[in-house]
């Protein structure tokens, strides 16, 4: 199968690559770009571990072909920390024990990122609704919701 040239901006860096049409965005990010924060859990859109932002929208990277991201801006959990400093969201997950094994965490944080960009002060119910798209097997979710709530606080403190 012929390779298709694409250029994708991931976490602010532009990459030009040639990919097979069937190459899933998740594999493109992990293997071709060596960005390992995006995890693969189910490969059929059920678990949400591979969630990334494409053009600002949370999507399952296991249900998106890399060619579809051609010309798009993609953000992954690899890019959350800036200059070695954890983002408020990461900081909040750390403080509130929003993770245990860490496998779902990137996806959870990307879903939360989308939410917080659209809505700087989400209610608890809105947070619950947002993270309900993703599976976590360790935490029982409570700490994840608390982490996002804490991130809201940290971001508001940071904005002052």
């Amino acid at each position: 199968m012929a390779l298709i040239p694409i250029n994708v901006t991931v976490n602010g860096t532009r990459f030009e690559r040639a990919v097979e049409p069937r190459r899933l965005l998740a594999d493109f990010l992990r293997e071709d770009l060596d960005l390992k924060a995006t995890h693969i859990g189910c490969e059929h859109g059920v678990c949400g571990a591979c969630t990334v932002l494409v053009a600002g929208e949370a999507v399952r990277s296991c249900l998106t072909f890399a060619v579809q991201a051609d010309g798009c801006e993609v953000r992954t959990a690899d890019g959350l920390a800036q200059a070695g400093k954890l983002s408020p969201l990461q900081q909040a997950f750390w403080e509130k024990h929003g993770l245990q094994c860490g496998y779902c965490t990137s996806g959870m944080m990307m879903v939360a990122s989308e939410l917080l960009e659209r809505n700087a002060r989400p209610t608890k119910a809105e947070i619950e609704e947002a993270v309900s798209s993703n599976l976590c097997r360790c935490t029982g979710y409570y700490n994840i919701v608390e982490s996002v709530q804490r991130a809201v606080e940290l971001m508001q403190e940071g904005a002052k």
Binding site: K36, T38, T76, L80, L86, W94, T105
Partner: peptide, 17 residues
């Protein structure tokens, strides 16, 4: 705060995959 977390939060968990 867990010692494990900073690397997990930044995608550096080094899972077998």
């Amino acid at each position: 705060k867990r010692v494990e977390d900073p690397r997990l939060l930044t995608g550096n968990g080094q899972y077998v995959g």
